[in-house]
């Protein structure tokens, strides 16, 4: 990965303030995305994945969502310091987002072609006719015949709608695509089609992708690197080969142990015991300590350091790299 850094998230802390408590959604997250890299952000419900993506785009719910600390550097500029009109020029143009549910991401009473063309004319000086032509090209690129330009979302199936959403996101050739569970709502055969298409388009357009998912299989099939997030903290980061071949954090191992696999005959799964901690009341030391089989007294008191267990593969755990001791 010799490419330039495109996006750098530094020490990001995001909180949600409710009437009587503070939800610690993102805690000291550092992420770097290089040009044309695909980074998978894996974690379970409530781990803070979507909050990170929303913070990058500056669309945290207001007034509850607050960035307490940190910087997000995109092409050398801190996004968090930008004003609304600068942000608006960035969104949908240089950074685009695909949302999880294609059924609700499209406007039901507008023709799909117009919805794509809108994104194009918003960010480019083009006539309506040019925008429409480019929208048709985009449709074709995602495998939808251009004749369907004038149809409405309800005339498309789920997989087709998600293709429209992807076409919309890629219409302005963004440098960075934030894909939030883009295939979770789809059937497996359709998911496979969409993933294959995303892989092709990413290579063709040289877009960097932050893929948010809970599915370790999807990550393995499309990502270069992976960051595992737990209770708002990145607990493990590395290339997919490093992390899948040699998972270092007990949580990552737990995730793999919970998966029923097709190729092996597991007779019993090894689930992670317990539940994710309450984000309004996180444990003092390691966030995973209550569920960890290896936890010892220090884990309950101090926050574990980030340890590099092999070049480019880091783990946030006291025991990282001390196997067999």
């Amino acid at each position: 990965m010799e490419n330039n850094v495109l996006l750098e998230i530094k020490d990001l802390v995001v909180e949600f303030h409710t009437d009587d408590s503070i939800v610690h959604a993102v805690n000291n997250v550092n992420i770097t995305i290089h040009e044309s890299q695909t980074l998978g952000l894996v974690g379970e419900t409530g781990a803070g994945k979507t909050t990170i993506a929303r913070t990058i785009l500056g669309i945290l719910p207001r007034p509850q969502g607050k960035v307490r600390q940190g910087e997000i550097i995109f092409e050398g500029e801190n996004i968090l310091a930008m004003n609304e009109s600068r942000l608006r020029r960035l969104r949908g143009n240089k950074i685009a987002m695909i949302f999880q549910d294609p059924m609700t991401a499209l406007n039901p009473i507008e023709r799909v072609g117009d919805q794509i063309a809108e994104a194009i004319s918003l960010h480019n000086k083009v006539t309506n006719a040019e925008a429409a032509l480019r929208a048709m090209d985009m449709l074709e690129m995602v495998g939808i015949p251009r004749e369907r330009f004038g149809e409405f979302p309800h005339q498309f199936s789920g997989g087709m709608k998600q293709r429209v959403v992807i076409a919309m996101a890629l219409a302005c050739r963004p440098r960075l695509l934030l894909a939030d569970e883009p295939t979770t709502a789809l059937d497996v055969t359709i998911q496979a089609q969409v993933l294959e298409m995303m892989r092709d388009l990413k290579n063709k357009l040289n877009t960097s992708v932050l893929l948010i998912t809970h599915d370790l299989g999807v990550v393995a099939s499309i990502c270069d690197s992976v960051a595992v997030i737990y209770a708002g903290e990145i607990v493990e980061y590395g290339t997919v080969f490093h992390v899948y071949d040699n998972p270092g954090h007990p949580y990552t191992r737990g995730l793999f142990g919970s998966l029923p696999e097709l190729d092996t005959d597991k007779t019993r799964l090894k689930p992670i015991k317990g539940l994710m901690p309450d984000p309004t009341n996180l444990p003092e030391g390691c966030k995973f300590c209550d569920r960890c089989d290896y936890a010892f007294d220090r884990c309950f008191k101090d926050s574990p350091p980030v340890v590099e267990i092999e070049p480019g593969h880091v783990v946030r755990c006291f025991l990282a790299g001390k196997e067999g001791e």
Partner: peptide, 18 residues
């Protein structure tokens, strides 16, 4: 259907039957 399941293994050589 079987080939479409993304495998949690980056070394997987399984071919997608599209």
């Amino acid at each position: 259907l079987l080939s479409a399941i993304p495998e949690p293994n980056p070394h997987s050589q399984r071919k997608l039957i599209s």
